[in-house]
Design a protein around this nucleic acid. Structure first.
Length: 467
RNA sequence: GGCGACGUAGCCAAGUGGUUAAGGCAGAGGUCUGCAAAACCUCCAUCGCGGGUUCGAAUCCCGCCGUCGCCUCCA
C-alpha cells in the first residue's frame, strides 16, 4: 500500500517515494544540550521514532541521523554561571538524554553527530558559500546574504520585506550588510568561549550551519525526510535550506515533516516559558508506555494537550491494552469463535496499515488496535485458546511494537513483599473455601489500601501492584 | 501588525462531500462473581456561531467569535 506524508514544503499530502528505492535517509533536529530535556523533546523523539519504525515495518532501510547541538550561547552561558567546562556540561546532558531515550524505548539513531565533531565540514561549507557569493566575512564573522537567495522563505512562506524586516537574529547587527542576514561563523569574543581555528580567525559556528553540514556529511546533498518540531520551521529550517541549497545546488530534503508542540495548560511547553515537565519527572511517576499512548493518541502535527486529566486516561488505556495480553486457559482452537478472532486480527492489521499509510495517523491506528483488544478478550471469554489465540496476541504485539509500546506488565514478583503477599493470598483462598467471606474480603480490602489488587478468577487468585 | 493552525460527546481524539460520526477515559444499566475486580453486552454527540454552494456538508466557500503557534532561543 502506498504511504502518503504531509510535506510542510508543499503543504500537501504527497506519495512517499524515497530517492533511492528501499532506503530512507532521514535527518531530525535534536536538542541543544544545556538543561534537562522535557516531554516536548520526548514527543518529538517519539514521533520520529514511530515514523522510523513504521518505515522499517514497511521494509525500508532507514538511515536516521540526529544531531546534538553542543556548541551554543546557552551552553556557554550556563557553563560560565556554574563554573564548568562547556563540553563537559554538554556531554553530561547528552549522556542523560540518551538514557532517557532508552527509557522511552526510542531507537537510537544510526548516527548522532555533534557540532564539536563537525567543525571541519562546517568550515568547508562556509568557504564554499563565500566563494559562491552567498556569504561574506566581517571582522572574523561570516554572514549569509539572505537577499542573494532568490527563493528564501519558501518553507515558512514568508516574504522578505513584509514580516521579516528588522526582527532577525540580534547577533552583531551593526556588522551585517542587511539586518536579514544571519551568522554562519561567530568570532570569539572572550577567551573562555570555545573556539576553533578558521580562515577567519578563532571562532565558532552559527546555529543553523551545523545541520546543513551534518546532513551533507552523513547523508549527502539531498535527503528524503527532514524533521523536527514545528517551531523550527522558521528560522532554523528556512536557513538550513538557504545554506544547503545555495551551496550544493540541490534540494536539501524531499519531504519536510514537523510535529506539533506539547501544550501545558493551554500554552506551548518550553524552556523559556518555564512551564515544563521534564522527562525524568514524568518517568518517575509513569510508565514510558503511558507517554507514548498520549503521543500516539492524537495526530503528530497537532498540538498535544497535556494536563492532570489526560495522564490518568492514558494510564487506563494502557491497562486495557495489557488486558488483552492475559493468557487464555480455553481449549477452543477452531470453530466460529476462533475464526472470528483470526479475522479480527487480519482486519486490525490491515486497518492499522491503512491508517499509518495516511500520514502516520497513529490515533486511528490505535483505534483499530483497541478493536483487536476487544476481539481477543471476547474470544478468551468464549473459550478460545491455543494457536489462534496466540496468533492474535502476536499480531497485537507486532502492531503495538510499531508504535514503540513495550506492554510489559509490572512484574509482581520483583518485590521484597511478594512472598508475604503470596502467603496472604494463600490464606485468603483457604478462607474462601471455608466460606469465610468477611475475613477474605478484609484481606482483599486491606491489601487494596496497600496498593495490591486481588482478582479472583476460575483459575485462582492473581495479584498485582496498583497503577 | 504579518503568516499559519485549530474549534467534533463531561475529558482526550479519529473522521474532511453521501451506509449506523472510529477509538480511549468517565458515566448509566446488565452478564459473570459469595460479594468484588477484570472481561463481556447495551446505552450515552449532528460536529463553535451565522450565511452560502450542492440532490446531499462535521467535511467546500464567506463572515463572526474563540483558542493556539511562528515572526527572538526553542522539539
Amino acid at each position: 500500500m502506498p504511504l502518503k506524508v504531509y510535506n510542510t514544503l508543499t503543504r500537501k499530502k504527497e506519495l512517499f517515494e524515497p530517492i533511492e528505492p528501499g532506503v530512507v535517509r532521514m535527518y531530525v533536529c535534536g536538542p541543544t544540550v544545556y538543561a534537562d530535556a522535557h516531554i516536548g523533546h520526548a514527543m518529538s523523539a517519539i514521533v520520529f521514532d514511530v515514523i522510523r519504525r513504521y518505515l522499517e515495518y514497511k521494509g525500508y532501510k532507514v538511515i536516521h541521523v540526529m544531531n546534538f547541538t553542543d556548541v551554543d550561547d546557552k551552553i556557554i552561558n550556563k557553563a560560565r554561571e556554574t563554573g564548568q567546562d562547556p563540553f563537559e556540561l554538554a556531554g553530561r546532558y547528552i549522556e542523560k538524554f540518551l538514557q532517557q531515550m532508552d527509557a522511552l524505548n526510542v531507537k537510537r539513531p544510526t548516527v548522532m553527530p555533534r557540532v564539536s565533531g563537525t567543525i571541519d565540514e562546517i568550515i568547508a561549507m562556509i568557504q564554499e558559500l563565500i566563494a559562491k557569493g552567498y556569504a561574506y566575512e566581517v571582522n572574523g564573522n561570516v554572514f549569509f546574504r539572505v537577499r542573494r537567495d532568490k527563493d528564501y522563505g519558501k518553507l515558512s512562506r514568508r516574504k522578505l520585506d513584509e514580516s521579516l524586516r528588522g526582527e532577525r537574529e540580534k547577533f552583531a547587527e551593526e556588522l551585517k550588510e542587511d539586518p536579514l542576514d544571519f551568522a554562519l561563523w561567530k568570532a570569539q569574543k572572550t577567551p573562555d568561549e570555545p573556539a576553533w581555528e578558521s580562515p577567519w580567525g578563532l571562532g565558532r559556528p552559527g546555529w543553523h550551519i551545523e545541520c546543513s553540514a551534518m546532513v551533507r556529511k552523513h547523508l549527502g546533498p539531498t535527503i528524503d525526510i527532514h524533521g523536527g518540531g514545528n517551531d523550527l520551521i522558521f528560522p532554523h529550517h528556512e536557513n538550513e535550506i538557504a545554506q544547503s541549497e545555495s551551496c550544493n545546488d540541490a534540494p536539501l530534503a524531499k519531504y519536510w515533516l514537523h510535529n506539533g508542540m506539547v501544550q501545558l495548560s493551554g500554552e506551548k511547553m518550553s524552556k523559556s516559558l518555564g512551564n515544563m515537565v521534564t522527562i525524568d519527572e514524568f518517568l518517575a511517576q509513569h510508565d514510558a508506555d503511558v507517554f507514548r499512548l498520549l503521543v500516539m493518541g492524537s495526530h503528530y502535527r497537532k498540538p498535544l494537550v497535556y494536563d492532570e486529566q489526560v495522564v490518568p486516561q492514558a494510564e487506563k488505556a494502557l491497562q486495557r491494552l495489557l488486558s488483552a495480553l492475559r493468557p487464555s486457559h480455553g481449549q477452543l482452537t477452531e470453530g466460529p469463535e476462533a475464526e472470528a478472532l483470526l479475522e479480527a486480527a487480519r482486519l486490525a492489521k490491515k486497518r492499522f496499515e491503512e491508517a499509518m499509510d495516511d500520514d502516520f495517523n497513529t490515533a486511528a491506528a490505535l483505534g483499530h488496535i483497541f478493536d483487536l483488544v476487544k476481539a481477543i478478550n471476547t474470544a478468551r471469554d468464549a473459550g478460545v485458546g491455543g494457536e489462534p489465540f496466540a496468533q492474535a496476541q502476536a499480531t497485537l504485539k507486532e502492531l503495538t511494537g510499531v508504535l514503540g509500546l513495550r506492554l510489559q506488565p509490572k512484574e509482581a514478583q520483583q518485590s521484597d513483599a511478594a512472598p508475604f503477599i503470596d502467603l496472604l493470598v494463600e490464606v485468603r483462598s483457604a478462607l474462601r473455601k471455608a466460606r469465610q467471606w468477611e475475613l477474605a474480603d478484609m484481606i482483599r480490602d486491606r491489601l487494596a489500601e496497600l496498593g495490591v489488587i486481588l482478582e479472583d478468577t476460575r483459575d485462582g487468585t492473581t495479584w498485582s501492584w496498583k497503577r
